[in-house]
Measured scan of single mutants.
Amino acid sequence: KLLSSIEQACDICRLKKLKCSKEKPKCAKCLKNNWECRYSPKTKRSPLTRAHLTEVESRLERLE
């Protein structure tokens, strides 16, 4: 599967780190437990900047 097509777990399953069936409108866990089942939009991760990478590398060197 391509990364862009990976389905996201519902908010509660993601928060509780449960295996989500990803069914809509309610996944199996939410249906069974009568929880409100919501699927928040995916958040875009910002790409690493060179400055951040350099900072992490220098912190790693100090720890070694």
Rank of each mutant, 00 (worst) to 15 (best):
I6Q: 13
K1C: 09
K17C: 09
L2N: 13
P25E: 06
D11L: 10
W35K: 13
K17S: 04
S5R: 15
H52E: 02
A51K: 13
S58G: 12
K17D: 01
E57D: 01
I12F: 11
C30Q: 07
E36G: 10
P25S: 10
E64C: 07
C27Y: 08
A9P: 04
L2Y: 10
K22Q: 06
T54C: 11
L53W: 02
K29G: 03
I6V: 15
S58M: 13
N33R: 13
E7N: 15
V56T: 10
T43F: 10
E55P: 04
S4Y: 13
C10D: 02
K22L: 01
K32C: 09
K17W: 11
E7P: 15
R38C: 12
I12M: 15
E23M: 09
L18V: 15
L53C: 03
L60M: 09
S21R: 05
L2V: 07
S5F: 12
E64T: 10
K44R: 11
L63R: 11
A9V: 03
V56A: 12
L63V: 10
L60I: 09
C20A: 04
E64W: 08
P47T: 01
S4E: 11
R45Q: 06
K42T: 09
C30T: 04
C13V: 06
E36C: 03
E36H: 05
K42G: 05
S40V: 13
C10A: 06
R50K: 07
E61K: 14
S40C: 09
L31S: 12
L2D: 10
E7Q: 14
I6C: 14
A28L: 14
S46T: 15
E36L: 09
I12L: 15
R14A: 00
E7Y: 15
R62H: 07
E55G: 08
Y39N: 00
L15P: 00
L15M: 13
S40W: 05
R38M: 08
A28P: 00
S5V: 15
K22N: 04
L63P: 10
E64N: 14
A9Y: 10
S58E: 10
S40M: 09
P47V: 02
K29L: 02
K44A: 01
L48N: 07
S58D: 14
T54M: 11
S40F: 02
E61R: 14
C27D: 09
R45T: 05
W35C: 04
P25H: 11
L48A: 07
K1I: 15
E61I: 09
K44Y: 06
L18M: 10
E57M: 05
E57T: 01
S4A: 08
K24V: 11
E7D: 11
E7I: 14
L48Y: 06
K19L: 03
K16P: 06
C10G: 08
C20F: 03
R45A: 02
R50G: 02
Q8A: 12
D11C: 08
V56D: 03
E61S: 13
L2G: 13
N33L: 04
S4N: 15
E64P: 04
K32N: 12
R14W: 07
K22Y: 06
R50F: 06
S46Y: 09
L63D: 03
N33Q: 11
D11F: 06
D11W: 01
S46L: 00
L2K: 14
K44H: 06
L63E: 04
S40A: 10
L2M: 13
R45Y: 05
C10R: 01
P25V: 01
P47N: 04
L18G: 00
E55D: 09
V56W: 00
L3M: 14
T43I: 11
I6R: 15
T49C: 06
R38A: 13
E36D: 13
C27R: 10
K24H: 12
C13T: 09
S46R: 12
L60A: 09
K19W: 03
E7T: 15
A9E: 09
Q8M: 14
D11H: 01
L31Y: 11
T49S: 06
K16W: 07
L63M: 10
K1T: 00
T43G: 03
C10N: 00
K32S: 10
K26L: 07
A51C: 06
T49W: 01
C30Y: 02
D11R: 03
P25T: 04
R38G: 13
R14T: 04
E64H: 10
P47R: 00
I12G: 07
C37F: 08
L60C: 13
E23A: 07
T49F: 01
C27T: 01
T43R: 11
K24N: 06
A51S: 15
C13P: 02
K16R: 11
K19D: 05
C13Y: 05
K22V: 03
K22R: 07
K26G: 07
S58F: 12
N33W: 14
K22G: 00
D11A: 07
A51L: 06
T54G: 10
C20N: 09
V56N: 04
L31N: 12
R62Q: 05
I12K: 14
L3F: 12
C10Y: 05
S21Q: 03
R59G: 06
K29F: 03
V56E: 00
S58L: 14
C20Q: 06
L48G: 07
R38S: 09
E55Q: 11
E61F: 13
R59D: 01
Y39I: 03
H52C: 06
P47K: 03
C27N: 05
K26C: 14
W35P: 10
R59M: 07
K19S: 01
W35V: 10
